[in-house]
Amino acid sequence: MSRSLKGGLFRLALLFSLGVGFLMLGTLLVDVFKDGLPYLDKTLLTNPPSVDPEIAGARPAIIATLYLGGLLLLFTVPIGVFTAIYLEEYADKTRWYNRLLEINIQNLAAVPSIVYGILGLAFLVRGLGLGRVLLAGAMILTLLVLPTVIIASREALRAVPDSIRQGAYALGATQWQVVSRQVLPAAIPGIATGSILSLSRAIGETAPLIMIGAVTYIAFDPTILGPFTALPIQIYQYVRLPQDEFKLLAAACIILLLGILLTLNAFAIWIRNRYRRTW
């Protein structure tokens, strides 16, 4: 077999792999849009779920998902960034407890989300007695994505060259001044990107929320300390209903969820490109 033939075959294999991904995504999108587009209207956004598919919407789920996302950022970003700063800038890496902490965070990032759901049910809903409320859902999603945010933030901090730290120290800056005025601002694009990508992962999560008992049918706007549902759960519920129209409604919800996720991811990419820096 000639060398150029080998090269050509390899190229074909690459294109085939790429094609599989594209085809799957394309089929999914076409299918979902075909079913859901007619139902993607104002009713979906403004009406609560109903037994009549013509007037049924997903307003409580949409609001709850926005709440969940907002609370999630509020909880995750400060905790995640501060943890990352401690591990990257302050911790003495030769100490066993810091290394243990590091390994633990890596492992936590790999724990299946359903396990976090069980943890949430046991400790937040029952242990702390929060009940099956939106706040508990936000907290459990926080725990779920925190390791990812910490790891992404650490990488962003590590990407700031040491020469910047040294330059700042050499001028008589304290460690906190070096971190807060030089290292952190330089790392913000990376931290923002990591946080947003984690957020979009969390918004699509279903299992832990089902586990802590996000109810599937609420007809009123959710509050932080009340029962709630979320878009993925709403989709799950609509698909399970016998009438075919609800399946189309589910498709409309999927388009909405995909839209939110793609917007978030596009925003993350924009931040990354906008603030890309070369040293």
Binding site: P161, S163, I164, Q166, G167, A168, A186, R277
Partner: peptide
């Protein structure tokens, strides 16, 4: 101190 490689802040 001035370092070997210029290290202006970004």
């Amino acid at each position: 101190m001035v370092f070997q490689k210029p290290n202006p802040f970004p």
